[in-house]
Structures are given as structure tokens and as C-alpha cells.
Design a protein around this nucleic acid. Structure first.
Length: 608
RNA sequence: GCCCUCGUAGCUCAGUGGAUAGAGCGUUGGCCUCCGGAGCCAAAAGCAAGAGUUCGAGUCUCUUCGAGGGUACCA
């Protein structure tokens, strides 16, 4: 928030150093730690080291010389805008803000910018974020949830930072897994589907698990069992062939059952407040991707080995002249001429850039597919697709359970809907215990916000590249480093403001900006300091594609608020001008916390 | 074999090359007839090992050890 001031000060320092013939290095600004006060700091170690290298140090140790420079600069620059005093400590130049001025600026801009406080300037760049890619004919589990909340949070952050943002979903609606469900449904369960959207989605998953067991080779199987299994498999492959040939019956069966999965997916996205702009389906890039393969063969980039019963491959390492294996050999068309996941991603990339004119394309996909994307992007590059360098795979660690990896076949899956229902139940129990006066008709709405807040925060407060073990009891904890902790800070702020309004003497909109000339407590300074960080936090998170940065910040901000709340009286203050200033601070803090939570896909209720 | 992640407190995780490595859970102790105790204040406890680069390394490079994932027709 203080870029202008920093730049003016930096300019003064540069002028001073130029005059004194000091080879000033880059000026990096940091907050001052341990001060209890408030300001910015920069060090002169790099400058002192540069002098030493140039032989100008006269044998003086770098830290000592850095301190000498810091003192010289401190004495050499006179009055600075918004700075009350300066000091030179251990090679650092610390500049302390005039608290009244900065407090006013931070609080008033948070109040006047409102839900836009912290937003970045337009970047004139269009970014597509692809996430929410569950396979159809399968139910949405907690791993899909991590993907979706990560992608949604990233999309919100990038958009808020100033990029035009397109949200894309890419469900896997075809492949052997899908056909397996289709086959089993048709053969054993036709017409038996439950009516409820979620029950029906989960029912498809049960069919899938059962079918894969039927088709799996067992130990010590009898000749009859073996024959049965092979007959089943032949039926399944025949169904895949018919799908590929456009058989009307199979296609209709496929579309009907696919719709059941999409019904469930859309409902979950609605629960998460996710609005997808563009839907891509694997089945729709199937044909276009075959054309790309043809072109790659013609251009000599791919080798067609179908003549010898082999597939179409790209020897990526060989094409790049790499001695060590890195990108390896990629199969881009099966020997029977059908496409693979990789094939379809080539066509999808082309579509994203050519049809939607995006400048950058981010793929939120788990890290087990890192090689897949390295191969896809390299093949695009070999093909001459310039935007290949604008494709970025945002890998995240996969989610497993305390009992081990999730497995539909073993029936070991944490379904999103079940976790969601459990979260509602737990919040309702907590409300009954802690806030029994809450009217019954408000409880479910509040429980949804708190339950989802806990779940979202538990996912986003772990860095995306880390694998994660999903423990329901930890994810649905409401104490400590959690979403509800932050939501509770908003609720407390809201409670103060509501009481102020109810007193009839105060109204946010009709108040003049307050003055902060009274001695601010360290809690107020810390809170305002945290609020002022928000715009930079947004930019950092967007640049690094890391919602975690916002998640960590939101917690720090809430902690500052809770401490303030506990230690500093607001409504109990006798001095009317101090009370007014603190009420505006509370309103501003509530706004910043709300904005930060929004970027995490979390909304805060007024009461909880 | 090769490639990619990762290793920080008993557990789960933060930590722009910069000053005294921070949280939560758990453990222990405190919180006044005071705006909501889903809270606040405090205590104990830690960078896998070794070299290197640097004025300065949890952070960058290399080696070793350990964990997970990937590695030609699944997605």
C-alpha cells in the first residue's frame, strides 16, 4: 500500500549514495520485525559486500561497514513523507511510520474500496484455469474436492489480482472406465437407478467397483470362472467398439448415464459456489485430436508403427537430442487407432488458445500426471505451437486416507457428499452447544457456511505440492488454525458493529473519517499493519499460483483481530472520538477478512 | 536404472537469501461480574546428515540417507 512513499524514500537514498560515492545495491523493503511499532526496513549488506569486492572496504567486515552506511544514510536523508523517525540497527535502516496518517489511510481505503479492497489493476491478460475434471460415471470424492477448491481459489485470486479469468471444467466422459460402468449397468442394473441425484451418482461408483472386481483376474480361479471373466471382458470391449463406431443404442445409454454424473457434479459445484464458464469434454476433442496426430506423422515428428502392429509414438528425447531419458517416448495413438488422454490434451490446448484467445493456460491436475503434461507441452512445442510455453501444469499432491490410498474397487473412498453431510451435522451440534439462542430456521444456512469453511481451509492451508492424508476429524475441526476461527473473527466484528448501530447513535455510512491521533495500542497497530499487507498478498498469491499465501494471511489477520478484540475496548470506550475511530477500524477489518475469505472460496455468516 | 515431489517441535503444517525459525493439535498453567470463551495470555519442545556458493543458508548447488509418485498403447 505504500509503494509511492517507498519510491520517494528510495530515490532520496539513491541520491544520497550517489553523492557520497557509495555503490548502492538493490533496495528491498521489508517490515521491521520485533519492533512492536510499525514501519519498513532495508539493509545495506549487499552494498557493503559490493564495496569489499571492489577493494574499497579497507579490510572492514561487511556487517560493520553495512551499519556504517545505514547510519550515514539515516543522517543524510532528512524529512520523509509519512515517516516519524528513523534508526540504524545492525546494518539495517528502519523507518517508522507516522501511525496516525497510515492508520487513516488504511482504514479509509478499506472502507471506501469495500469488496474491491486489495484488488489489482487490470493486467490486460486473459488466463484460463482448468480444474474440476472428475471422470463421469464415478462419484465425486475428497480428492476431486481438493482439486476443485484449489482451482476455484486460484481463479478467484488471479481474477482479483487483475487478470481476465476463464474457468474451465474438463470432465473425463469417455475411456475404458466409463465403458466398464456402461457395460455393467446395461447387463445387471438397467432401470434400477435411485432417483436422488447424489444417491444415483454414488450408485454408479458401486457399479464400477463391482464391475472391476468381476473383471479382475483372481487367484486360483476355476476354468469356469476364467471363461466367465473373459466373456465379460469381450462384451465390454465390444461395447467400446460400438461406442467408437457411433452405435445409436450405446451412445444414448452413454449420454443418459453421463447426465447422472453431471447432475451430481453440477450440484456439488453449486454447493461450492463455483461457476464454470466453459465445459470441455474428453469425448469432444477425440476427433480433432486425431487430425493433429495425422499432421505430426506427415511432418515426421511422430512415427507411425501401425504397419507392424504398433502404435503411433513420438520419441521426444530423440527429437530434442537429449542423451539422458527425460521426456521419454510418448504413445499418441493406440495401435487400433483410438486416442489416448495425451492425444486429447493436444487438441484441447489448441482449442483453448485459438478459440478462447487466452494468453495463459493453467492446468490444475494432480502431480502424478507431471510427466504427462511435460510430454504434452513438449509435443506441442515440437509441433510448432508457440503458446506451448504459456501452458502451466499446477501440480498438487494427491489425497489419501489414514487407511491408505483411496480405491473405488476396495470401497475405500471418502465421498464429498458424505463428508459434507457430516460437517453440517457437526456444526449443528456445535451451535446447539454454544449458541442455543440461534433461531432454528437460521441454523442450516450458518452450518453450511461454517462446514464448508472448515473443509476449504483445511485443504488450502497446506501447500499444493504436498501430498495430504485426509482425516475427517482434523478437516472438520473448528478450533485453532481453521476456517471457522477466521469466520468467528468476522462474526465478532459484526457483533460489535451491530450493537453500535442498535444503540441508535452510530451508523458507518454517516460517519466522517476518524482521526487516529490518540496513542494507538500495539494491538491496533498490528491489526492495521496486517490489513495493509493484503494488496501485496493478493499479487504474490497470483504470481506464484498459491492460494496458501492467502490462507496463511487470512489466519494472521484474524489472529490480529482476535487479539485486538480481547485487549482493546471499543463500545466501552468513553472518549467518543476514540470510539468512533475504533468502530471504523472494526468495520474495515471485517471487510478485509471477508475479502480474504472470498478468495479462499469461503463465506462468513453474520452469526455462528 | 532414470525423472519428479518431499524431509522443519511428539503429531499436522507455515517460513521473499537477511535481525531472535513461527502457528495449530496435544501437554502444562493462567484469563477481572468487561463488546460472543469456535476466543485471549503464557510455558516446554525443532531445520535428516555432510560438503559447497555467499558478507549472510531452513531457503541456492552437490553428495548421502529416508518417504511418496511416475516411467510405451489407463486417466
Amino acid at each position: 500500500m505504500f509503494e509511492k512513499e517507498q519510491e520517494i524514500i528510495a530515490e532520496k537514498i539513491r541520491a544520497f549514495c550517489a553523492e557520497k560515492d557509495i555503490p548502492l545495491g538493490e533496495l528491498k523493503w521489508m517490515p521491521i520485525p520485533f519492533s512492536g511499532e510499525w514501519g519498513i526496513s532495508t539493509s545495506f549488506f549487499a552494498t557493503a559486500a559490493a564495496e569489499a569486492k571492489a577493494g574499497k572496504s579497507k579490510g572492514m567486515p561487511v556487517p560493520v561497514r553495512a551499519q556504517e552506511i545505514a547510519e550515514a544514510v539515516k543522517n543524510g536523508i532528512s524529512v520523509l513523507p509519512g515517516i516519524s523517525r528513523g534508526e540504524a540497527v545492525k546494518g539495517y535502516l528502519n523507518l517508522y511510520f507516522s501511525t496516525a496518517e497510515v492508520a487513516l489511510k488504511v482504514v479509509e481505503s478499506a472502507l471506501s474500496d469495500g469488496i474491491r479492497f486489495g484488488a489489482g489493476h487490470p493486467k490486460n491478460e486473459r488466463v484460463m484455469v482448468e480444474y474440476a475434471q472428475p471422470n463421469t460415471h464415478h462419484s465425486f470424492h475428497i480428492g476431486h474436492y481438493r482439486n476443485t477448491i484449489l482451482g476455484e481459489s486460484l481463479a478467484r485470486i488471479v481474477q482479483f489480482a487483475g487478470f481476465e479469468t476463464i474457468r474451465a471444467s474438463y470432465p473425463g466422459d469417455i475411456g475404458l472406465g466409463v465403458i466398464t460402468v456402461l457395460w455393467a449397468y446395461e447387463k445387471f442394473y438397467k432401470g434400477q437407478e435411485p432417483a436422488d441425484i447424489h444417491e444415483r451418482g454414488q450408485w454408479l461408483l458401486k457399479i464400477y467397483a463391482e464391475a472391476t472386481n468381476r473383471l479382475a483376474e483372481k487367484e486360483n480361479e476355476t476354468p469356469e470362472e476364467k471363461a466367465q471373466r473373459e466373456a465379460y471382458d469381450a462384451e465390454r470391449r465390444e461395447m467400446y467398439r460400438k461406442w467408437d463406431a457411433g452405435d445409436e443404442y450405446v451412445r444414448k445409454l452413454w449420454l443418459d448415464t453421463r447426465e447422472w454424473s453431471l447432475d451430481e457434479l453440477r450440484d456439488i459445484l453449486h454447493m461450492m459456489d463455483v461457476k464454470i464458464d466453459v465445459w470441455f469434454f474428453e469425448s469432444e476433442v477425440d476427433e480433432p485430436s486425431k487430425k493433429i496426430v495425422d499432421e505430426l506423422i506427415v511432418r515426421g515428428i511422430a512415427s507411425d508403427e501401425r504397419g507392424n502392429g504398433g502404435p503411433v509414438i513420438v520419441k521426444i528425447d530423440e527429437k530434442l537430442g537429449l542423451a539422458k531419458e527425460k521426456y521419454r517416448v510418448a504413445v499418441i495413438l493406440r495401435s487400433d487407432g483410438t486416442t489416448l488422454y495425451l492425444t486429447k490434451d493436444l487438441a484441447l490446448a489448441e482449442q483453448k488458445f485459438d478459440e478462447f484467445h487466452v494468453d495463459r493456460s493453467i492446468y490444475v491436475v494432480d502431480n502424478r500426471q507431471s510427466l504427462h503434461f511435460q510430454q504434452a507441452f513438449k509435443i506441442l512445442e515440437l509441433w510448432g505451437f508457440k503458446q506451448a510455453e504459456k501452458c502451466y501444469h499446477l501440480a498438487y499432491g494427491f489425497v489419501s486416507l489414514p487407511e491408505g490410498a483411496m480405491s473405488a474397487r476396495k470401497g475405500r473412498v471418502a465421498l464429498f457428499k458424505e463428508v459434507y453431510d457430516e460437517s453440517i451435522a457437526r456444526v449443528l451440534a456445535t451451535i446447539a452447544e454454544k449458541n442455543p439462542s440461534m433461531p432454528e430456521n437460521e441454523r442450516v444456512g450458518v452450518a453450511q457456511k461454517i462446514g464448508m469453511g472448515a473443509l476449504a481451509y483445511s485443504m488450502l492451508s497446506v501447500d499444493n505440492n504436498k501430498d495430504m492424508i485426509f482425516d475427517v476429524n482434523e478437516a472438520l475441526s473448528f478450533d485453532g488454525h481453521t476456517g471457522p476461527y477466521i469466520q468467528n473473527a468476522v462474526v465478532r466484528a459484526n457483533s460489535i458493529l451491530k450493537k453500535a448501530v442498535e444503540s441508535g447513535k452510530w451508523k458507518l455510512e454517516s460517519q466522517e473519517p476518524a482521526t487516529y491521533g490518540y496513542p494507538l495500542s500495539t494491538h491496533e497497530i498490528e491489526l492495521i499493519e496486517q490489513m495493509s499487507r493484503f494488496p501485496n498478498v493478493v499479487q504474490q498469491a497470483a504470481n506464484e499460483y498459491r492460494p496458501l499465501v492467502v490462507a496463511a494471511y487470512a489466519y494472521d489477520l484474524a489472529t490480529a483481530f482476535h487479539s485486538f478484540y480481547h485487549a482493546v475496548p471499543v463500545l466501552q470506550t468513553d472518549d467518543e472520538s476514540v470510539k468512533s475511530a475504533r468502530l471504523r477500524l472494526v468495520a474495515a477489518a471485517k471487510q478485509v477478512m471477508t475479502n480474504a475469505l472470498y478468495l479462499l472460496g469461503i463465506s462468513a455468516p453474520d452469526v455462528m
